[in-house]
């Protein structure tokens, strides 16, 4: 199962990279994907049955526009803070909690936090806490900070990677 998932992913990558239906090229792609999937299947994915649920891909599609929106807001925010003569920043590190249980989900959450306005993930602990550097600290409390930083993404990421 794990090998099948990695085979599909690597073969699609090969198809996109070569962008042709020339037969020898396809055969080489199949061979390389087979070798790769036999070697690296164990470290690529842990719950392969989740890969075949269409619902997760739909939620991923829903997640992309939200993510792009926050990304643009983040950039305008940084541009504002950079150009303001008084440098309106009040930085600090806060601790937030996540309910995501899978590793991939946590990494996706950490990446999203890094790319959204004013926050940067510094540390990700095993028991589900993230240490986040916040450029303009509004709440020091764990609950409050979680509500303000994590709750924007967590419901959707839970559906995608949960």
């Amino acid at each position: 199962m794990k090998k099948l998932v990695l085979f599909i992913v690597s073969f699609i990558t090969w198809l996109i990279l070569t962008w042709t239906v020339y037969l020898p090229s396809l055969l080489i792609g199949v061979g390389v994907s087979l070798i790769v999937s036999f070697w690296f299947a164990d470290i690529f994915i842990r719950h392969p049955q989740n890969f075949f649920q269409i619902k997760r891909f739909l939620y991923l599609l829903l997640y992309i526009p939200i993510f792009i929106f926050y990304c643009i807001v983040a950039n305008l925010d940084v541009a504002y803070r950079v150009l303001h003569p008084k440098l309106p920043i009040e930085p600090g590190i806060v601790k937030v909690k996540t309910e995501l249980s899978t590793l991939t989900g946590r990494v996706a959450l950490a990446n999203s936090i890094t790319l959204t306005p004013g926050t940067l993930t510094v540390e990700l602990t095993d028991d589900g806490y993230l240490y986040v550097h916040w450029i303009n600290v509004k709440a020091i409390d764990v609950e409050e900070a979680t509500k303000m930083i994590v709750k924007k993404f967590e419901p959707i990421l839970k559906e995608v990677f949960g």
């Binding site: 940084v78 004013g118 550097h133 450029i135």
Partner: peptide
């Protein structure tokens, strides 16, 4: 312009 490593990382990573 930013003062320390974390804020500089913020600016550089996002932008």
């Amino acid at each position: 312009r930013f003062p320390d490593i974390y804020t500089r990382l913020q600016a550089s990573s996002k932008c």
